[in-house]
Amino acid sequence: MTLDKWIAVFFLLLCIVYGYASFTYPLLPFERNMAFLPNTMPMVLSVVGAFLALLILLMPSPKPDGEGDVLGNIDVASLRKYKIGPALALIAAMILYALALRPVGFLAATALFLVGTGWILGERKLHVMVPVALVGAGSVWFLVHEMLGIFLRPLPGWLS
């Protein structure tokens, strides 16, 4: 089975779970007599979604249209050609950044994130990357926090 069929299976399961949640949706007492309920559209969507997922699953896969489309066009069959390692490392770095943003503070977390992702991508000139990261983090913080007044904790929690 090709990848798009597996995704169709995932969508089908999603629609079944979603459909279960919407058909058993706890209605408030005064809502019951209305023509349109908070779960009306979800019920319709789950049925339509499940039908479409089945359709994708059962229909033969369309042949690739030949004309390379400018955006996508990555071949799953030759997945090994692609650099999956760095991509996974970047995803891990983003998750770490999300978790560290509050406790470590915006400035340090951002500078570390920029230097770290640069390192993953093969940048070894730290004497350039570190100042660039510091200036980038500092200027975005200045713009968002000082000029626009949106709170971003700059330093670690125990310092500020």
């Binding site: 983003m94 999300a98 994130f113 920029l114 992702t117 640069g118 990357m129 949106i150 709170f151």
Partner: peptide, 26 residues
Amino acid sequence: NYLIPFILFFTMVGAYIGQNNATELL
């Protein structure tokens, strides 16, 4: 090597300042 880290950083900051919520980043 500089562009990609900054694109990732800007997308994350964009999502973060809207909600001020780290769950949003996950």
